[in-house]
Design a protein around this nucleic acid. Sequence first.
RNA 1: GGCGAGGUAGCUCAGUUGGUUAGAGCGUCGGAUUCAUAACCCGGAGGUCACGGGUUCAACUCCCGUCCUCGCUACCA
Length: 678
Amino acid sequence: MSTDISRYTITAALPYANGPVHIGHLAGCYLPSDIYARYQRKQGRELIFVCGTDEHGAAINMKAQAEGVQPKEIVDKYHAIIRDSLKDIGISFDIFSRTSNETHHKTAQEFFKEMYKNGSLEEKTTAQYYDPQAGQFLADRFIMGECPNCHFAEAYGDQCENCGTSLSPTELISPKSRLSGAAPELKETKHWFLPLDHLSDKIKSYIQSHKDWKPNVYGQCMSWLESKDGLQARSMTRDLDWGIPVPLDDAEGKVLYVWFDAPIGYISATKELLGDAWVDYWKKDDTKLVHFIGKDNIVFHCITFPAMLMEHGGFHLADEVPANEFLNLEGKKISTSRNWAVWLHEYLEDFKGQEDVLRYVLTATAPESKDNDFTWLDFQTRNNSELVAILGNFVNRVQVLMQKYYDGAIPAASKLETVDEEALTEVAAAPTTIEESLEKYRFREALSRMMSLARLGNKYLADQEPWKRIKDQPQRTATIMYVAAQITAQLSQMMEPFLPFSAAKLQEDLGMENWAWSECSRKEFLAPGSKIASSGHLFSKVEDKIIEAQKDKLEAMAKAAQGPSYEPVKDEIQFEDFTKLDLRVGTIVSAQKVKKANKLLHLEVDLGFETRTIVSGIAEHFSPEELPGTKVSVVANLAPRKLRGVMSQGMILMAEDSDGKLTFTSVPESMPNGSIIR
RNA sequence: GGCGAGGUAGCUCAGUUGGUUAGAGCGUCGGAUUCAUAACCCGGAGGUCACGGGUUCAACUCCCGUCCUCGCUACCA
């Protein structure tokens, strides 16, 4: 890894094709990767920048089913939206592929076969639910039944949406297939697992050879590697009909696990782009492999995927994984299901021609070292007082003055004074300082260093006051304007990775090309006599009412998404079913936290005829001190269950609103403990 | 509860081989200016560096403890 770098493989996390891309994705992954790729291209480095949609997995299957369409329709729709919106915001992928295409299917299958041949995969047979009517095995999500825990009737096979418990399908009481409604049968099925424990040391020394990785990345990896349970084997296959068929004889109806095939998508995309030359970008050690991802993907890219590559053999492992944290929106977590998001394709509609504004704001506020907040007010401020007032304004001043005094033709400088020399020295030094930041993945710092060129320009003009000198010092004025023109030219070059649209526009005004990075460490970009045109302001102000409209839109969309989110009414039951429940009035006599659990409270509840111990998961909603004396409704005949070492003998009834907030179901104070509720 | 990351000016952040009055951008206040989209330029105010101990001649920086935020994980109505 210390060898000289001959080429770069830059990947951006594959967006999952079950929804559009929002500003969080952009800030966390696509913008930084694009800035990096554009910068390295300008450096003249050989590189590929690959991405594509991730189109497999049970979630897409589910969504298709919910909408009553084929999975293919879902992924086609979102692939197009994602591809177009990323292109329109200027993300300069060399290829934007998709995991549903043939090259990828073949590549993933070959990869799997090779691992199989190497003996890296462990075959295990387990009992899984099977739908006899639909004739297929059921993914966890495809099974519904009664939660063993809270007895919610529509718990899914992986999790109960009502009480949040993680489940395995076999725990469900009276399970039903969501495909046909039939009762599923347990049937033996075979899957292929990737054991990781034996790789633990190898992975650890790999991670430890990258101590320079960002603390969040390095820390999280070591946290996993040093966890007491060790690295668990993960199943690399699923019983599903949407995905890449497992390329083995005895694997009818089985597909590769989506997390297995997705990262191979980077490789397939490279093949698609380069043909046989893909090998250079993935197997040679003089290649630098950089994965841009969000923090949710760290473990996968730093541990699982490298493990897959190690087991397959012959691959070069990631050199850098500059993962970002999360971006919040107006103080709240971005949420697709609550529709709390600024969607990229909608931004592009609402802010036509202002692609660079979003790029600027999201780069300036990118969550590089900790979660960060995007607000529309901040968006407006940064646009108006940074892009418009500093950058756009400086460029415009130069263009206007040049036009006014010299008809747009750059004058020749006479003798350079110290201030001129100093300014030009800074101009020539800009690439070096910006490069320093970019090579360390400090994009916000790089952006700010780029902006200081504009600040330098504004100060230079203010100090030199050409508008005063034009009257009686024509030679001095010419020199000043010559210098100002060079600053502008350098700006147009240094802007390019960050603000490609504005850079192109400015370069055109200046009659320049997008120069190589190495050509930019200079003092003269534009010779005297070359023309500077002006095609109008680079940026325009964002008015208050635009911001208000966006904020209103956000609230309205969130409200609409939240409106009809009532739980569906459960299946009808008979009166006898109801009478099985023994509900009683009780009073909490004492409450204390259960140790080593932060959601559980150990309650003693007086039921009149006896006092019960009940463990309740309400510790995040109530403090123990406020509870004694509270009248509650209790399920008195629930089978006892041990929770965190404490035997719980019953359950307290709670009401929950759509935000997950809990309250006790009220019982009048006057009702004696032990009274029956029916 | 365990593990990881973070807690520095109104806002967004930089600052660790410990060392003079803790920095930047934006905002704010005052001044100056008019080439420029009331933009630009200069200056000021503004910080118990989450809190409490400890090590040291010296701590934002090292050690111990506590609190808060985020993530993973356990546990859960």
